[in-house]
């Protein structure tokens, strides 16, 4: 019944089956899922490292690009500012010229108007003066002078005054 040191065929086969069952159990419920998990984790880590590397490169590239753009924009801005300064200068000059011309025109026109008004006023004044002078003279002298002489004197005076005015202008 009992073999050498307890070695028996049924027991031996039974233990062999035991071990094979354990091997199967551990392989399918233990090692396979765990190794899959380990592999997946390793893959995940590798992938995320690669991603991080790629992101860093992308970032570096973007930074260089942005810096380039900023410096370009700065240059452009500077040239725009220069141009607008020039344009402003030109516009100012033009405005100054225009204003001067306009002012001159206004001055000229005003002077003409003034002269015209003055002539008119002078003419009216003269007429009135003549009339008043005649009236006054008539009253003062009444009939001491005859009418012919009277007129001659006035005419002469007017003549002188006209000459005087012509000289003035």
């Amino acid at each position: 019944m009992e073999g050498f040191l307890g070695l028996t065929l049924p027991s031996f086969i039974g233990q062999l089956i035991n071990f094979l069952i354990l091997l199967g159990l551990l392989t399918f419920f233990g090692y396979k899922p765990i190794r899959r998990m380990l592999d997946e984790r390793a893959n995940r880590i590798k992938k995320s490292m690669e991603q991080a590397e790629a992101t860093k490169q992308e970032y570096d590239r973007a930074r260089v690009e942005v810096e380039k753009r900023i410096s370009k924009a700065r240059d452009e801005g500077q040239s725009i500012v220069g141009q607008s300064e020039q344009a402003g200068e030109r516009i100012k000059e033009e405005a100054r010229q225009g204003a001067r011309k306009e002012a001159q025109a206004i001055v000229d026109r005003t002077r003409e108007e003034l002269e015209r008004d003055r002539d008119k006023i002078v003419d009216e004044l003269r007429k009135e003066f003549v009339d008043m002078a005649i009236l006054a003279a008539e009253k003062v002298i009444s009939e001491t002078l005859d009418k012919e002489k009277h007129r001659q004197i006035i005419e002469k005076t007017l003549e002188e005054s006209a000459a005087l005015r012509r000289n003035e202008s």
Binding site: L7, N18, F19
Partner: peptide, 12 residues
């Protein structure tokens, strides 16, 4: 300590 188990493992 059962000789059958080491023997089975050895055969495997």
């Amino acid at each position: 300590t059962d000789l059958n188990i080491p023997a089975a493992l050895a055969v495997v």
